[in-house]
């Protein structure tokens, strides 16, 4: 069988989701954002929500998410995406509304907006990319930076006495009455990616069923600012991030 015989439309088994357009993504090679973007694009299409989705992008590496996934978007001020989403969902209750935020945006400057939107039980989904560092600004300490981890603003490693402790926003979210589904996933392997996709689908569905707010944390890599190759970054994440940020559902009230 020749390659040409295999490469026929009827034999197609995987291609880039249609909602992910052809604009080259600005993310660094191997960045987890791209994988999560694909999953979001796939889930929106599979739910048939292409014409009814409003997404909110953050400030941080994903600020330009609106350039890549072909739905309506609003670009929020730093940390404020859940406030925008709260209003948008209440004003358009039949739309799929989600935010896409990094750890600096969500767990630091936007902690207030995040916790209150979740606690109000807004029928939205928050997708939370946690790579324990500020990517866009060049690798500074994030609220989720692990103890001992070196960043541009804790170059000798994060120390509790100097910098405080890493924040587990997802654990906090699980205690809030307004949340329906709170889960922590990752996208470093095929199995993890398929699970993460199911989690995003579940969160989006719950939000459309009016069951409350949903938080999907994706423990991610930032190989550039971690100063590792993409492959090494995935290994480092498994060894160092997963023990502190264990994967799995923290709450499923659906």
């Amino acid at each position: 069988m020749t390659k040409e015989e295999i490469i026929q439309p009827e034999n197609l088994v995987y291609k880039k989701p249609e909602l992910l357009n052809d604009t080259p993504m600005h993310y660094c090679p191997g960045c987890s954002h791209g994988v999560v973007h694909k999953l979001v694009a796939e889930v929106i299409a599979e739910m048939g929500m292409q014409e009814k989705t409003i997404a909110i992008s953050p400030v941080g590496c994903a600020v330009f998410a609106y350039k890549y996934i072909d739905v309506d978007w609003q670009e929020a001020a730093h940390g404020r995406a859940p406030a925008l989403a709260s209003a948008i969902k209440r004003l358009w209750p039949d739309r799929l509304v989600f935010t896409y935020q990094g750890d600096g945006d969500l767990a630091c400057i936007g902690t207030g907006e995040t916790i209150h939107a979740l606690n109000r039980g807004e029928n939205i989904t928050i997708i939370f990319i946690n790579n324990a560092i500020y990517g866009m600004t060049g690798g500074q300490m994030a609220p989720t930076t692990l103890l001992g981890m070196k960043t541009a603003t804790c170059p000798y490693g994060r120390e509790p006495a100097l910098h405080g402790y890493p924040l587990k926003v997802t654990e906090i979210a699980a205690t809030l009455q307004g949340t329906c589904y709170v889960t922590r996933q990752s996208v470093q392997s095929v199995a993890a990616i398929l699970k993460a996709k199911k989690a995003i689908r579940k969160a989006f569905e719950y939000s459309m069923q009016g069951k409350g707010s949903n938080l999907v944390e994706i423990v991610s890599t930032c190989n550039t600012n971690w100063r590792m190759s993409p492959v090494k970054a995935n290994q480092w994440m498994e060894e160092n991030m997963f023990p502190f940020y264990p994967l799995g559902d923290l709450k499923d009230n659906g």
Partner: peptide, 26 residues
């Protein structure tokens, strides 16, 4: 009409930003 007490003025105005983007009178 939607009426919502926000957690802060920062949240209020960003809710207005979100709402204004939808083309609604907020």
């Amino acid at each position: 009409m939607v009426v919502l007490q926000a957690e802060s003025e920062v949240a209020s105005i960003n809710m207005v930003y979100g709402g204004a983007g939808t083309g609604k009178k907020v």
